[in-house]
Design a binder for these strands. Sequence first.
DNA 1: CGAGTATCGTTGGCAGTAACAACTAATGTC
DNA 2: GACATTAGTTGTTACTGCCAACGATACTCG
Lengths: 180, 180
Amino acid sequence: MSRTAAKSLLLDASLLRDAEALHSALSGLLRVYQFRDRDRICCYDISVTQCYALEELAEKGPSRSQSLAEALLLDKSTTTRVVDALVRKGYAKRRPDPDDARAVILCVTAAGRKLYEKINRELIQQQAELLRDFDPGLRNGATKVIEGLARAAQARFVSGVSVGRCDPACGTDAVAARCG
Amino acid sequence: MSRTAAKSLLLDASLLRDAEALHSALSGLLRVYQFRDRDRICCYDISVTQCYALEELAEKGPSRSQSLAEALLLDKSTTTRVVDALVRKGYAKRRPDPDDARAVILCVTAAGRKLYEKINRELIQQQAELLRDFDPGLRNGATKVIEGLARAAQARFVSGVSVGRCDPACGTDAVAARCG
DNA sequence: CGAGTATCGTTGGCAGTAACAACTAATGTC
DNA sequence: GACATTAGTTGTTACTGCCAACGATACTCG
């Protein structure tokens, strides 16, 4: 055990350096892409979150409100309101669930699918322009790396029990507010 | 030119596939990390955007409101309000700019720096845990890829003239709202 | 069966995010 | 010194996101 501990300590220095670099790089990436999404998606008729919801419904098919919330990592109340907006704008609709009178089935309308596909095409087109400057061999690798990172982050940050989060180790003092 | 065009067409198929895969992977990554940030940062006393602002001021030093807005890719009015919150909570302060009576100099307070460093340490620690499962050779590569992607996206999505965005080619019809 | 409990989704309330437009005050420019 | 420009703030609107409370339905077990 002491050997392992020593080794782990040795690794820690470089690991922390890497973690810091990754953190910094990811911050930048997130910022730019959030900006891009605001900028592009909001040129149309819906907000970014609304578009994510539309995407989820369009790609994965009809869904209950709760599973949509889980997929989007949103609170159920937020999901209700996001769907409200989509319904109001005619891009989604709610149907009663025949199996459970409490639940609703959410699905996209034809207009919703059309809009989603249009936005999606544009976003992908933008990625294509960006990738065009990359070495073809790197392109695939980049996606692989992102996917791996996303998977790892999903597993680690979105605590196993699906919705429950903020494990006891969260922060050290001012945790009370949201994690109490 | 026709040869180039033909070649470009040939490339387009694989390029589009790659773009689609990247788009999808990035969507997931963004979603998980946004969730993580909400979850971790909001355990403390500030919101995600407020933390980004704090970070910018702590890492890059005092700054005018406008350059902070540019760095965060936010509207100047949003920036004003984000800073309002930080000032109210005692993490930042505004000082008059001796060179220009219209401008203000924004800087973090000691409490602000302390809070930022604490949050930052935690976020980096989380990345380290995540990276621990990665092959050491891959770790560095991952960061490189993310950095490259962020740079390319910055250059491409954040149109050259710093703040001006939504070029004429944006979307095709419903552009009016924000880009008119 | 029927009381108690759990779950599904909605609503209310609050703070924050984000944009555009209009505005004030200070600078520049001619 | 008039006129446009720039820096930052404020007003307005819509959306995000959380927690808590609620009504309605479903489950459970005595």
